[in-house]
Design a protein around this nucleic acid. Sequence first.
DNA 1: TTGTTAAACGGAGGGTGCCTCCGTATCTTC
DNA 2: GAAGATACGGAGGCACCCTCCGTTTAACAA
Lengths: 218, 218
Amino acid sequence: MIYIAGMDEHTDQTRKPRADAVRNRERVLEAAKAVFNAGGPDASLEAVAKRAGVGIGTLYRHFPTREDLFEAVYRREVEQLSEFAEQLKNAKDPVDALRRWLHSGVEFVATKKGMVAALALAVQSGSELHAFSFERLTKAIGSLLERAAAAGAMRADVSPEDLLRAFFGMCYMHDQPGWQSSVLRMLDVFVDGLRVRPVAKANAHAARATKPATKRKR
Amino acid sequence: MIYIAGMDEHTDQTRKPRADAVRNRERVLEAAKAVFNAGGPDASLEAVAKRAGVGIGTLYRHFPTREDLFEAVYRREVEQLSEFAEQLKNAKDPVDALRRWLHSGVEFVATKKGMVAALALAVQSGSELHAFSFERLTKAIGSLLERAAAAGAMRADVSPEDLLRAFFGMCYMHDQPGWQSSVLRMLDVFVDGLRVRPVAKANAHAARATKPATKRKR
DNA sequence: TTGTTAAACGGAGGGTGCCTCCGTATCTTC
DNA sequence: GAAGATACGGAGGCACCCTCCGTTTAACAA
């Protein structure tokens, strides 16, 4: 178990956390943020330690695995994204709300090279980010999806997990020039596909196409 | 310049390529295929060399960079995928043809862990695979898209590059259980979004949504 | 066959990064 | 100020990357 800096005044009879430990943790976090955003998820941890002015051992004590560090760095960002979904719950057009959320996600990713990787980790299983981010973002998308489906504006056979995966997948390919507008365009196409078909003929096609995916997942 | 094994009888006054060189190249390729498919794109090249029963130096002489090896391994597979698109050109329903191609792409990826990465490389710029695979696959998708658009069945504002990116993006997240059916489902939604809207109201939405992407890309 | 020579082989070695371990330094508490 | 808990930091062992070059071997000619 690792102390989270500044959680509250020392609870009961535990010692006050050491000042240098708190300081170093903060330094490492800041350095990691910079290094990951610039160099992506494979950036050298030793570089992070050096930038933080800290020994490599100290880094590893605070964050035993690479993922732990990632999680700490991007937890707040994920939270922001999630909160934005909360705000959008009051939008008039629920389909448009979903679209707007996705778009803001793209913008979010645009400035942070490490962010995509962090979110990709969230989507894949096994990592620690999974527990936090995945659940958080799934819930965020889920609430948007649900509202749209309840309003009858959108098909109901797509799970939040599906959507999350599709979204980050698209963002993952973000090294080309012009990736951003391309992704936005693709997301629009995608959201259009989610919209409930107003005409029977189109529905027939959709039904046939969706057949191969037998189970609703999990 | 590296000799491609068995291209033809030695052209003019060049020496016949050495037998051991040809043999080793083949061995390395086979080993690399196995190792990459199993361990993904970050697999150890030294493991490849060992599996091939060859010194690490030999591996590097034949394939100076990791990407070169990747390219050699997956070139044929990409070609296959591309040829399948060619066959689909004669299908009745062009939209369905596109869907089928995408589905087969998923299947293709399913058994090859390294394949996704190879294709991701193709989509990103800089790599050598770019020149070959990207162009090839873009052309494959392009022909399908074009036919569908010409038939008036599909919107014309999505480029083959966009689609390629979206496709591989979705496949990139393929470590979860059940990823395959999820991706298939998402692709269907996506293709539905591509379909030309039969009703004015829906079209209005689509037009509004597509607005942010101002340019046709590049 | 045998000799010549270009070509290919393979692995040692220098570099970087990962992570662990533990002697040393520093902080908190009394 | 002393004691004890806690954190520091970097040396060290490991794995991988890639290059370089002395040694081997296959192709060709005589």
